[in-house]
């Protein structure tokens, strides 16, 4: 079994229901995210549109976070999920430095690394991940990539030629796919939000990192 995700960006309408469901299900603290929906405004007025891209851990086949973890806190489980043992994590942040997708954070409450686990605890009870359940348009498709009859396998076959992964050049072989993605949605450098162009003057953020 090799579990994977596919998001059809044509269907996603940016309701952020998946974000909230994930935060509630996994009790993700403020300033940290296991799943977020990035939006990028494209075009020049009046020819504009807003794109939405749900971003989560890619559960890579060749996961840099698993490789760099000094204590195997990040490890593969038999269904292909890259899981994390928070009791073993020493908080070195090596995984944060290694993940090319910025999908791992240091939980400010437990002071350990954390990330999307495809809701491994729900899957163990034969339930779908919380974000899949919350999505009103079934843009999140989850299933076994090795089963040709699964919804995700059929979707990939049906959209052959229009299925993308993030940063394929990194050689991580993500098990997270997009349909209808492009440079603007999947390449963070193509849609950088410059500092100083905010509605509010006094923007603060919650502390995330190490010792500056």
């Amino acid at each position: 079994m090799q579990l994977g995700f596919l998001v059809d960006l044509h269907l996603c309408m940016g309701c952020k229901g998946c974000e909230i469901a994930c935060k509630v299900e996994n009790e993700v603290p403020l300033s940290t995210w296991r799943l977020r929906v990035k939006y990028v405004d494209v075009g020049t007025f009046p020819e504009t549109k807003r794109t939405f891209t749900p971003l989560r851990c890619n559960h890579c086949e060749n996961a840099p976070c698993e490789r760099i973890c000094p204590v195997s806190a990040l490890h593969y489980i038999e269904n292909g999920i890259v899981n994390i043992d928070k009791e073993r994590c020493i908080g070195c942040a090596g995984c944060v430095m290694a993940c090319p997708y910025g999908a791992i954070y240091i939980d400010p409450e437990t002071q350990t690394a954390d990330k999307c686990t495809y809701c491994a605890h729900r899957i163990a009870s034969s339930m779908m991940p919380a974000c899949v359940v919350a999505c009103p348009v079934e843009a999140n498709i989850f299933g076994d990539l090795e089963d040709p009859t699964s919804n995700i396998s059929k979707y990939i076959q049906r959209h052959a030629g229009n299925v993308q992964v993030r940063k394929p050049e990194k050689g991580t072989n993500p098990h997270h796919y997009y349909v209808g993605g492009g440079n603007v949605t999947l390449n963070p450098l193509a849609s950088r939000r410059e500092e100083g162009f905010n509605l509010f003057n006094n923007i603060t953020t919650l502390p995330l990192g190490g010792h500056h």
Partner: peptide, 15 residues
């Protein structure tokens, strides 16, 4: 107004 954003911004972890 002082606005605290709940957003994932890049930050320095190895300082």
């Amino acid at each position: 107004a002082v606005v605290t954003l709940d957003v994932p911004l890049p930050d320095i972890f190895w300082g």
